[in-house]
Design a protein around this nucleic acid. Structure first.
Length: 245
DNA sequence: CGCCAGGCCGTGT
DNA sequence: ACACGGCATGGC
């Protein structure tokens, strides 16, 4: 009997395994506190992490790496501190809106915020300015410990280039949800009870490989995903790589 | 100098 | 529903 073609979720699972073998456990998100994760989630929107680090350093030097610290800044002061990350008018007001919501609806407590159910929390985060699906999920998973997958541009490119998803949807809503669904399926059979840990590691690995090999110019030379694991079923010739943007 | 980065939003079809 | 351009800044 002939071998069946692997399902997209099974292939994604194998890609995870290859990434784990190549990079090892990531233990992500690069931040010390819950609030620092949230700030990073806002600041990294379409922005290199290097720039985010500079902004966070500015905030730290200003004593503003906390809810209280942000409360004590004017909008213009906050804009100047996060300047390295760009989109300063949008991001500054978005961060202030988040803090205002924590204050007004959660008694100024991130602990209180985290105690809300994930599905309700996701709705409320998405209702905030400057919070789309990825930022919401990053906050839910990495800041609040909720077991939700995070999809991002790197995963989109990987899934598109390896034909795990259909025609290469852009960064629209349904495209994002499709990636989340695919990720859920990929790990559905995993015995690990801690789903948050699973999704945490996976997204971290995606970013690790993404930074190294999944830029717009797609240098897939010695990417772990282009190795023997992928040689037959997964890797695409460069000429067939779907265009992005 | 030009390209691009761990998105999101408003507008037009 | 989706495509498309704007949003700001700095690294490389």
């Amino acid at each position: 009997m002939k071998t069946q073609p692997s399902s997209p979720e099974r292939r994604l699972r194998r890609m995870h395994d290859a990434l784990f073998a190549a990079y090892g456990p990531q233990r992500w998100w690069p931040a010390r506190t819950t609030f620092e994760v949230i700030l990073g989630a806002y600041l990294t929107q379409n922005t290199a992490w290097k720039a985010v680090e500079r902004s966070l350093a500015n905030l730290k030097a200003a004593g503003a790496l906390s809810l209280a610290g942000i409360r004590g800044l004017t909008t213009q002061e906050l804009q100047q501190l996060i300047r390295p990350s760009g989109f300063i008018t949008r991001k500054a007001s978005a961060i202030q809106a988040f803090v205002a919501t924590v204050d007004n609806e959660f008694d100024g407590s991130l602990r209180r915020l985290a105690s809300a159910p994930a599905n309700e929390l996701r709705r409320r985060l998405l209702a905030l300015p400057g919070v789309g699906p990825e930022t919401a999920d990053a906050i839910l998973l990495y800041a609040l410990g909720k077991p939700v997958p995070v999809a991002d541009e790197y995963l989109r490119r990987i899934a598109a280039r390896h034909r795990l998803i259909e025609p290469v949807p852009g960064s629209n809503r349904t495209g994002y949800e499709a990636l989340v669904t695919l990720t859920c399926k990929a790990f559905a059979a995993d015995p690990e009870p801690d789903r948050a840990q699973l999704y945490n590691e996976f997204h971290a690995l995606v970013v690790a490989v993404g930074k190294a090999h999944c830029g717009r110019a797609a240098d897939c030379g010695h990417c772990p995903l282009a190795g023997d694991l992928a040689s037959a079923a997964i890797t695409l010739p460069r000429a067939q790589l779907p265009a992005h943007r």
